[in-house]
Design a protein around this nucleic acid. Structure first.
Lengths: 251, 251
DNA sequence: CCGCGATGAAGATCACCAAACTCACCACCT
DNA sequence: AGGTGGTGAGTTTGGTGATCTTCATCGCGG
């Protein structure tokens, strides 16, 4: 109607083509939920209000809510409204959810759980990878490792390489469950590693162990791979603890 | 033959009396995809055609497609069409997806992967459960175990109890990732156990090991719990192999 | 061979209708 | 007279269909 605000003709001209209005709206609502703007257990505004709040039509809002519902973030009951689900009903194994939560993960509890899971899963994945990884995958791991080695002093690059390393490792396990888990954990890892890299300055030991793991995979040494993964995770535990201390002190 | 298959009506919540047309449509499309009616990599019919195929309006179709897209089953490109994603892009860690796939899991590869993952995860979860399980959770496990013990000859009841047992076990680990995984694996397990219970007649050993696990948890015996879980999974491996042989012969 | 427009399909909005849940009000019973 | 219970209006989500916009694609013509 009158107030528009819905960039109709001008906004689509040159700057950003946005065929994805809905995607942004979904993310926006999700992030508002993650940021506790809409606290757990309480109702969301009415759909019509959400339309105005986010400046889109009700159809878009509804599609977004359906997606959010399918990921367990909210539960829409027929004529009573949409309420935010409790955090442990969220599908935290979904990459998108984790991405939305990422910046707002305040409790180290979740990061701890993920680390615990990694501690369980990655050694096994490394072992499977030792017998199943393709040459290409080993090469990718090696490439990621070299990037880690060469990017001392560049936390950005280091984190990227680290992420790549773990993603490829899980993929190389050739287990569909682990593979999927990797894409989910990727998101959480991004923030955990970021925190770690802030807190920990000395990454040489991590580089060393990662390199040994690649070597073990190359040798198809299952037990060696498992041990390397274990040592890698020992370091991760240490780093998370350090990060927790730093972050905890900061706030 | 062609339609329905919808009969398995949500074992989850009790008063599930939501009219929910869209939910059914989403499931219908998803199951058609899982049944390879729309093969991987090929385009879905146009949205307007889907409207007629499933007898609903375009809005409902679109909401369904958005949900499906958010779970990685399909990928909608702006003005090109919606295509079915490759199977390994599907979010198989999503309970709904697994439920849709369930009846159509034809490759024992996925079941094998899940079993592999369980072999990795459940012993660790058992160990964590040994130190963290609440009295209530142990009681629930005990209850599930007794139901297993007492339902010899009733595969239905036995499977239910078995499912309950593993779900509670994962929950009792008090690790959010495992917990979430449990609700996902639950769906797959349902079909795997069903197959196993058909193929294997003697469940006494399974009952025995499950009982020992409960006992270990009660004693807070971490290594004992881990060992029991390992033995449990040895049986599961055996059972899946047996099931594979039987099913493989059947078709 | 290149560009230009026609075509077509998805993205997005709007205006409805339908169903059912809420709540307040009012009548009826104790 | 006061509490209980039914009823009806209003509200809110579920669902439909028409309409407009925006581009990707393809074929035609310069």
């Amino acid at each position: 109607m009158e107030s528009e605000g819905q960039g109709r003709a001008e906004s689509s001209s040159s700057s950003e083509r946005r065929p994805r209005v809905r995607r942004n709206v979904t993310a926006a609502i999700a992030q508002d939920i993650c940021a506790d703007r809409y606290p757990s257990g309480s109702p969301l505004p009415r759909e019509n209000d959400l339309c105005e709040l986010y400046g889109v039509s009700r159809t878009v809002i509804r599609e977004s809510l359906k997606v959010l519902e399918s990921k367990g973030l909210v539960r829409g009951k027929p004529r009573v409204g949409t309420t935010v689900c409790d955090r442990d009903e969220w599908n935290i194994l979904d990459a998108e959810v984790l991405n939305w939560m990422g910046p707002y993960i305040k409790d180290f509890d979740l990061l701890g759980c993920i680390l615990e899971a990694r501690r369980t899963i990655e050694p096994a994945a490394a072992e499977y990878a030792a017998e199943r990884a393709s040459a290409q995958e080993i090469a990718d791991l090696d490439k990621a490792w070299r990037q880690m080695r060469d990017s001392a002093g560049e936390p950005e690059s280091f984190t990227d390489a680290d992420l790549m390393f773990h993603t490829v490792l899980l993929t190389a396990s050739h287990n569909q469950v682990f593979r999927r888990l990797s894409s989910a954990i990727h998101a959480a890892l991004k923030y955990a590693l970021h925190a770690s890299n802030i807190a920990v300055e000395n990454r040489e030991d991590a580089v060393l162990v990662h390199g040994q793991l690649v070597e073990a995979l190359r040798m198809r040494d299952k037990t060696g791979a498992r041990e390397c993964a274990n040592r890698m995770l020992d370091l991760a535990v240490r780093d998370l603890a350090a990060a927790e201390k730093v972050i905890g002190r900061t706030r």
